[in-house]
Amino acid sequence: MLKVENLCAGYSGDDAVRGISIEVAEGSCVALVGANGAGKSTLVKSLCGLIVPRRGSVFFCGENISALPASEVARRGISLCPEGRHVFVPLSVEENLLLGAYPRLPSFGRFRRAASGDLQHLYEMFPRLGERRSQQAGSLSGGEQQMLAIGRVLMARPRLVVLDEPSMGLAPMLVKEVFKAISSLRTAGMTILLSEQFANSALAVSDRAYIIERGSVVLEGASAALAKNPAVMAAYLG
């Protein structure tokens, strides 16, 4: 479904991503695992159109999307839940969720009704968001904001969900909850690309994984097998 070929990208100076190729099959959950600063986020941002890649290409359902702006990539069905959550702080929880469904809602008129089914479904999944639907997103705690960010992605009815560091900056208890949510998405049959620094957790929820170190893939394979590989530990603690 998603195929990234020999991608190089970076902000300034050296490439943070140096020729990475990955593949995500429909219905699978693939993890990108690596320590901070390994280049996971740059990779994810460049395949979603937030950074223009310097070389290489990204194919989604057979179409080359590497030169498209982020909004067009999103309209083709790739939904990124960005690192650091990036909820719309001044808007309410419900408005945040509605924005997730923006491309298929009418710009004027009865957009709330058009989205009511999805909203209800989502509030069942994350009851905390339902309780706080009219509260400002900025007043939520870190964990709730993460749930909101994931909820916003789901509202888009994406064909591929990309989660970038969903556990970042969260207390361990909340991290567990986030992974629980990811795991249930997977059971529901979503295609997921997960970029995550917590190797154990990421390998536990994914089918396949790529271990990334200093901008390149150093190991790849089935997650269960990688989890037993001591080289993964070495990539973190030296």
Binding site: P172, V175, K176, T187, Q197, S201, A204, V205, K228
Partner: peptide
């Protein structure tokens, strides 16, 4: 520290087998 970096290996909540670190 290991947990902070690598995440919990208490994976029962993930509906999968526990994986030794």
């Amino acid at each position: 520290v290991i947990e902070a970096y690598l995440g919990s290996d208490n994976t029962e909540t993930f509906e999968q087998e526990a994986i030794p670190c």
